[in-house]
Design a protein around this nucleic acid. Structure first.
Lengths: 353, 353
DNA sequence: ATTAATTCCGTGTACGTTCACGGTATTTGG
DNA sequence: CCAAATACCGTGAACGTACACGGAATTAAT
C-alpha cells in the first residue's frame, strides 16, 4: 500500500487544457473572465487528473490573513479553563504560518456584564471567526444575532446552545456523562446505597453542565429497577468561606450512612478535602475533570473516580474547525462530543494534564 | 492574549547582520564557507529575533523527498490492526505535501518468516525511516542492527523492545493496563470472587502483551490483602475450531462459581459469544480493544468493560514522530504511553471506532 | 610582483501559488 | 465601417526558502 505525494500542478492542467496558469487559476477560484467552454474543459481536466492544491505554495503566495477570536472564562477564576486554553494555544501555534492569528479574550464566568463587554470588544476587532463558551444564554443569543448579521462563523466550546446555527460544537454530552457516573456507582455500591450529590457552584450561575449531569445521573438510577439507592442533593455556594465544610457536616450528621458522593463538576477537590480531614476516605467519591487539585486526591485514594472530557482537545479542535472552514474551505462536523473518560488512580498517569 | 504569526524572515536577519540571505542560509544549515565571526554574529541575531523558519516555504523550495516505511501485521489476519493502519494513513495524508511518502508493508503476525521477508523487502526500498511492530524479538533485533548500520531511525508501535535505541515508542503500558483491569474487577466482585483468565492466542506466538497484562492483573490482586479472589488461567489455541467453547465448557464445569472473566487481548468477543449462547451474561466480563465484534457485545451487556488504547493515535503519532525527526528536525519524545481507556456501554459511543 | 589557491560571500533561479496588470480578439454602437 | 466597449486570456512579480554558481578579497606559492 502506497501513499505518495500528489504531483499535479496548476501548470500541468494548464498545459493539458492548452491555456495559461492564469486561466486555470481563475476557474479554480471562480474569478470569472473565462469562457464557459474553457471553464468546463478545465474543470473536467482538474477532476480527471485529481488535482489537489499545494497548500504550502498557496499559503506562501496568499496575501489573505485571517483573524480568529476566542472568548472563554478567565482561567484565573476557574482553573479548569487552563486546559482548553492550552489546546487553543497549540492550535494557534500550528496555524500561524497560514497567515492566521488567534486572539484569546478571557471573561469572568460569574459575571454576565464581563461577558458582554468582552463580546463587544471582540466584535470591534472584526474577526473572521469566533470560538466561544456560551455560558450566558440570553447574552449569547444576542451576540449570535450580531455575528450572523456580519456573517461571522462561530463555534461553541464546552457548552452547547440548542436552536442556533453554529458551525460546530466541541464538548461533552453532559447528561450521558452523568449516566456513566451513575453506572459506576451503581455497580460498586451495595443494594441499599446512599448517595450524596454535591453541587458546588456560584449562586448566581448554575451551569447547564451541573444540571444535565445530575439529570443523567438520577435518570440512570431510576431506570434500574434492581437498585434502590437513596439520594440527597446539596447546593453549596462556592463563595461562602465556611463552605463546603458546613453543609457537608450537616449532611453527614443527618445521613450517617452515606457511602457514595457524586460531585457533578470540577470542584470535587473541595469535597475531597473535607473527606480527608474527617477520615471519611472509604466513601466512594466521584467527580469531574483532571485539575491538579483533583489529581492529588486521586493519588491519595480520597477521590475514586474522575470523569474527564479532554478539554485540551476541545480547545484545539474548536479553533481548528474554524480554521478549516475559513481558510481551507473544508467541511467540518457540526456535532463533536468528547469522550467520557473514566479515570482512576491506576490509569491517571496516562492522561495528559 | 495574542498569538500572532511570526514574521521574521531570513532576509530580515540578513539585513540586520549586514550580509546576504545566502550567508545566513549557510550558517543556518552548517554548510560552512562562513567566517566564524560572521557566523557567531548571525547566530546571535537569529536568537535575538527569535527566528523560526517558514516550513511551507521550506518544503516548497526543498528538493529533498523522504520515504517512510511501516511494517505492521496484516489487518486481514487480525482485525485489530485496521485501527493503527487508519491512523497511519491519516498521517501519510497530512505529510504527503511535505515531499514525504509512506509505504505500508503488512506481514503475517503468526509467521516469523513473513516478517523477515517483509523486512528485507523494506530495506531494499532504502527508506529514510521505519515504523514497525516488533512482535518477533530475535528477528527484530537482527533488523535493528541492520537499520543502525544504515543509520535509519526507527519507531516501535504497539510493542516495546527494551535495550534498543529506538527513536520513539507508541503503545500502552501493558502491565499497568492489567492492573487497571484488576482494580475494576476487584471493586465490583464480591470478596470471595472467582476469576477466569482466558488467553486466546496462537500457540506459536504468545505475545508480550498477553503475558504482561496478566502479570499486572495478578500482581494487583496479590497486593490487595483484603481481596482473596481465586484465579484460573486458561490458554486456548485460536486456530482450533472447537475452541474456545470446549475449554470454556470444561472450565465452567470444574469451576461453577466463576463470576468474573478477564481476557487480556482483543479476542474477548469469542468468549462473549460463548457466554451469550450459554446464558452466562451475568458474569462480569472484561477484555481489550474496540473491535466491532466487541462493541456489539458491550451493547448487549455481555462484555462489561473494554480497555482501549487508541490504536489510531498510536499509528498516527508513530508516523508523525518519524516525520518530525527526519523532515522537520524536531526533537521527539521517546516514550509515549497511550491512555488506558476504560470503556463501558454508557460511554462507548464517544470513542471513535 | 604576479599567479594560483583559498576563503568568504552575493546573485539568481526554482518551488507552486496568487493576483494585478495589460494585451488580443470579438462584439457593440453610431 | 471605424471606434469603443467588452470578453477573454497571458505575463510577470511576488511569497520565504534552498542551493548552485561564480565573483571578490585574502593568502600562499613561485
Amino acid at each position: 500500500m502506497t501513499t505518495k505525494s500528489s504531483k499535479i500542478r496548476i501548470k500541468d492542467i494548464a498545459e493539458k487544457a492548452g491555456v495559461s496558469i492564469g486561466t486555470v487559476d481563475r476557474v479554480l477560484h471562480n474569478r470569472g473572465d473565462v469562457r464557459s467552454e474553457t471553464r468546463e474543459k478545465i474543470l473536467q481536466i482538474v477532476k480527471e487528473m485529481g488535482y489537489t492544491p499545494n497548500l504550502f505554495a498557496k499559503s506562501l503566495a496568499s496575501k489573505k490573513t485571517y483573524r480568529l477570536a476566542v472568548l472563554i472564562p478567565d482561567s484565573n477564576d476557574n482553573p479548569y479553563w487552563k486546559h482548553p486554553k492550552s489546546g487553543i494555544i497549540k492550535a494557534a501555534d500550528e496555524i500561524k504560518s497560514f497567515n492566521t492569528s488567534v486572539n484569546i479574550f478571557p471573561f469572568n464566568a460569574t459575571d454576565e456584564a464581563s461577558f458582554r463587554n468582552c463580546f463587544i470588544q471582540v466584535l470591534r476587532t472584526e474577526p473572521n471567526g469566533i470560538v466561544f463558551n456560551p455560558v450566558f444564554r440570553e447574552a449569547s443569543f444576542e451576540f449570535i444575532e450580531l455575528m450572523e448579521a456580519k456573517n461571522i462563523p462561530f463555534v461553541y466550546i464546552d457548552t452547547f446552545l440548542e436552536k442556533s446555527n453554529c458551525l460546530a460544537y466541541f464538548g461533552q454530552n453532559a447528561k450521558q456523562s452523568g449516566r456513566v457516573a451513575a453506572k459506576i456507582l451503581s455497580q460498586i455500591l451495595p443494594e441499599n446505597g446512599e448517595v450524596l450529590i454535591v453541587k458546588l457552584a456560584n449562586r448566581k450561575v448554575i451551569s447547564h453542565h451541573l444540571k444535565n449531569r445530575e439529570e443523567g445521573f438520577i435518570e440512570f438510577f431510576n431506570e434500574q429497577n434492581k437498585c434502590n439507592c437513596k439520594f440527597t442533593s446539596l447546593i453549596i455556594d462556592l463563595l461562602d468561606s465556611n463552605e463546603p465544610n458546613q453543609s457537608l457536616y450537616t449532611a453527614f450528621k443527618t445521613h450517617p450512612n452515606i457511602n457514595g458522593i457524586f460531585v457533578p463538576n470540577s470542584r470535587v477537590f473541595k469535597v475531597a478535602n473535607y473527606l480527608k480531614e474527617n477520615n471519611k476516605t472509604d466513601i466512594l467519591c466521584l467527580g469531574y475533570d483532571l485539575l491538579h487539585e483533583n489529581i492529588d486526591f486521586i493519588e491519595e485514594n480520597v477521590i475514586d473516580y474522575i470523569i474527564g472530557q479532554r478539554p485540551e482537545d476541545q480547545g484545539y479542535h474548536g479553533v481548528m474547525a474554524l480554521f478549516n472552514h475559513i481558510a481551507l474551505k473544508k467541511v467540518v462536523n457540526k456535532s463533536n462530543y468528547s469522550p467520557i473518560d473514566i479515570i482512576i488512580k491506576e490509569n491517571i498517569n496516562y492522561y495528559n494534564y
